[in-house]
């Protein structure tokens, strides 16, 4: 599983990244987490709001910090 967290580095984006990493550690699932902060790369995904969570090329959540139980449901 390939997880990307898109965000220029505001408080919400950092929170999202932390949450995702925690969820991955808790569920023990086999996933790579990548944080993308570069504006050009973020724009290239075609998303209009940050933070955005992309799992295997599907936008799971955009413009808000996701809930932990939702993140866990995406991972399993």
């Amino acid at each position: 599983m390939e997880i990307k967290v898109l965000g220029p580095g505001c408080a919400k984006c950092d929170k999202t990244e932390k949450l995702i990493r925690e969820a991955v550690a808790e569920t023990g699932c086999d996933a790579t987490v990548e944080k993308i902060t570069d504006m050009m790369q973020i724009a290239a995904f075609g998303v209009v709001a940050t933070p955005t969570v992309i799992i295997d090329n599907t936008v799971k959540c955009s413009g808000k910090v996701p809930k932990k139980q939702d993140v866990i449901s995406w991972l399993t």
Binding site: P8, K12, I42, A43, V47, V48, A49, T50
Partner: peptide
Amino acid sequence: TPFCSCSAVPLFIGFVT
């Protein structure tokens, strides 16, 4: 529309393109 000024740039690009 929910908007946060830190996502002004992706929003601008997303709209214009």
